[in-house]
């Protein structure tokens, strides 16, 4: 009895679904190229993570290579170089973290500016560096700071000083790359906050003005709390990249004198997995996998923590 009753429902549902899919067939077709790309270049490579548990041999392929369990991870966690790379990466990121408030401050200041013309000129200028490649940004850095031709040293020498080798200096390299990132990103990152500020309910300011609140109080008591959700989202995203650095920037800024301070995972993986004559695919994949898993974990953790605090998070 129950069988008889259930059967038509299932059939109906199946037919209904099929009809609905058929009805949207052209819509699916529109999305298909994009989905294909994601499968080809994002999902299929994930199977390559298995290499981390093998002694991968490109001639034998993923199926023919020997399985070695956690050998590469064992080696990784006992490698002094690994901890050096981790340390460098975290230092670079912590320094960058110090600049996290900069775009928020820039947005708040831009918002205070009354002249729209001036605002536009400033915005146009500060967004520009975002669109330059690292190759260009590093080139500009060289033009400014190189020891013989750089303008900073030329000015120093003309004023009777001696040239400083900024780019080869262990004291200068971290400040330089931090400032580079700030220079390139501060304007662009401020857009998100500007948009958030624009979305704040104007009636709140009116009410505050009637209560006699001054500009600073309005900023502290209305604007900043209102854009906190955006700040939190940006912070979560930032957490995801705390053990990553930009390959192009670090790779291009590296020279023999500062090499030990710019040893990071990305460059190591590239040099030993791609550019090397004897690539160690499995070991470098293990490093990459460690990075991906920790990043994802950190995003999920931060997201969980902030949703518990009452913010909406990213997911």
């Amino acid at each position: 009895m129950t069988k008889k009753k259930a059967a038509p429902v299932v059939v109906h549902k199946k037919g209904y679904l099929r009809k609905k899919i058929w009805q949207y067939r052209w819509i699916y077709l529109l999305g298909l190229p994009g989905l294909t790309i994601l499968v080809l270049f994002n999902y299929i490579p994930m199977s390559g993570l298995l290499m981390a548990f093998q002694d991968y041999n490109p001639y034998k392929g993923l199926l023919g290579s020997e399985w070695v369990g956690l050998k590469h991870f064992d080696k990784l966690f006992n490698d002094a170089k690994f901890y050096r790379m981790l340390k460098n990466t975290i230092i670079i990121n912590l320094l960058e973290m110090l600049t996290f408030p900069a775009p928020i401050i820039l947005a708040l200041l831009l918002n205070e500016l009354r002249s729209t013309k001036l605002k536009k000129v400033i915005q146009t200028s500060v967004y520009l560096p975002h669109f330059l490649s690292w190759a260009i940004v590093v080139s500009l850095t060289f033009f400014l700071l190189s020891s013989e031709q750089g303008i900073v040293n030329k000015i120093a020498v003309s004023m009777g000083g001696t040239p400083t080798k900024y780019l080869q200096s262990k004291d200068w390299i971290y400040p330089i790359i931090t400032i580079q990132s700030l220079w390139k990103g501060v304007g662009w990152s401020s857009i998100v906050y500007l948009a958030a500020i624009a979305g704040v309910d104007q009636e709140l300011y009116e009410a505050a003005k009637i209560d006699g609140a001054n500009k600073l109080q309005q900023m502290l008591k209305i604007t900043i709390p209102s854009i906190m959700p955006t700040v939190v989202v940006m912070l979560i995203m930032k957490m995801g990249s705390i053990i990553s650095v930009g390959f192009e920037q670090i790779f291009l800024m590296t020279n023999a004198n500062v090499k030990s301070m710019l040893e990071v995972f990305e460059v190591y993986i590239y040099q030993n997995g791609v550019a090397s004559g004897f690539p160690n695919y499995s070991y470098t994949t293990a490093i990459g996998m460690f990075k991906s898993v920790v990043s994802t974990g950190l995003v999920l953790l931060t997201n969980w923590l902030t949703t518990r605090k009452g913010y909406s998070g990213v997911m």
């Binding site: 609905k20 819509i27 995801g240 791609v274 990459g288 994802t296």
Partner: peptide
């Protein structure tokens, strides 16, 4: 953006690529 069957799944599928990447070497081999 359309109410198609499987929308949730495809959404997750796109979002997941933001959250997790295979890494340099698997991409290179691919």
């Amino acid at each position: 953006s359309k109410p198609i069957p499987g929308r949730k799944f495809f959404n997750k599928m796109v979002m997941f690529t933001m959250l997790f990447g295979a890494g340099l070497i698997p991409n290179f081999i691919n």
